[in-house]
């Protein structure tokens, strides 16, 4: 039997807002597995904490409870909930990619350099990185006249393509996708789907948030549904849950 690249047990995330004296629950009791060459789809209504799961894996959020067991390319098991910062940075550079919902990139950088960046970080020459970036941008149908300018002034759909290109170009072992086709026209969305299918064939493991059931159906090998934390969940209740998950 195949072993998962990523296995999450009892993940929870809540936010403690000191100023307001409040705890805001986000994800709770999330369990899932992701395998090489497969896509696990994360579904559920808004507020169910789907993005928090992805951010918890990438450690943009600090998980509140649970284990995030990732098997790296050397076969070593690492709990991303506990890993030190240098280990996380190394994994981000070499193995784990994240296409977030909104593009954040360095200002004043050309689109080509934004997309090439993950390859440059890995030590590829600027020229070869730019060539691969250009290929990916072309595959995603972003007009060539935009490549030399900064994505700051781009439309939502154009920004999303830049974001996708940057996430896909380095072919990570594990790719996290937060609504990858949300603001794309149907033709471009279809291209993105084609690319996702392609990298799946190449063995990339993916965890993706989709809103369209059709996409889940087409691309998902596994489906995990999250439910929003119940509105009556109090601070105390969260503490109790944590004990159960710990």
């Amino acid at each position: 039997m195949q072993t998962p690249i990523l296995k999450i047990n009892g993940f929870a995330k809540h936010f403690t807002l000191h100023e307001q004296g409040k705890q805001i629950p986000s994800s709770h009791n999330v369990n899932l597995e992701v395998y090489a060459g497969e896509l696990t789809a994360l579904i559920g209504p808004t507020g169910a904490g789907k993005s928090s799961v992805l951010k918890g894996i990438y450690r943009t959020y600090l998980p509140s409870a649970g284990e995030i067991l990732y098997r790296d390319r050397h076969g070593e098991l690492v709990d991303l909930a506990q890993a030190d910062e240098y280990r996380m940075l190394q994994l981000r550079h070499e193995e784990i990619g994240f296409v977030t919902q909104f593009l954040f990139c360095l200002p004043r950088q050309s689109t080509l350099d934004v997309v090439a960046h993950p390859l440059v970080v890995r030590g590829e020459s600027r020229e070869s990185a730019r060539n691969k970036a250009a290929e990916m941008l072309a595959a995603l149908n972003l007009p060539e006249r935009l490549w030399s300018i900064s994505p700051a002034t781009f439309s939502g759909g154009e920004k999303q393509r830049v974001n996708l290109a940057r996430g896909l170009v380095a072919k990570p072992r594990l790719l996290l996708l937060d609504e990858p086709t949300a603001s794309l026209d149907p033709v471009t969305a279809e291209r993105v789907i084609g690319i996702i299918e392609g990298i799946k064939q190449e063995g990339v493991a993916m965890l993706a948030i989709f809103h369209h059931p059709e996409l889940t159906h087409r691309l998902g090998d596994r489906v995990v549904e999250l439910t929003p934390p119940s509105a009556s969940l109090t601070t105390q209740a969260i503490d109790q849950q944590e004990k159960v998950y710990a």
Binding site: K55, R59, T60, Y61, L62, E85, M88
Partner: peptide
């Protein structure tokens, strides 16, 4: 911590 974590999920 990691800079994005400090800015997005300050403790």
């Amino acid at each position: 911590g990691l800079t994005d974590q400090i800015l997005e999920d300050p403790q």
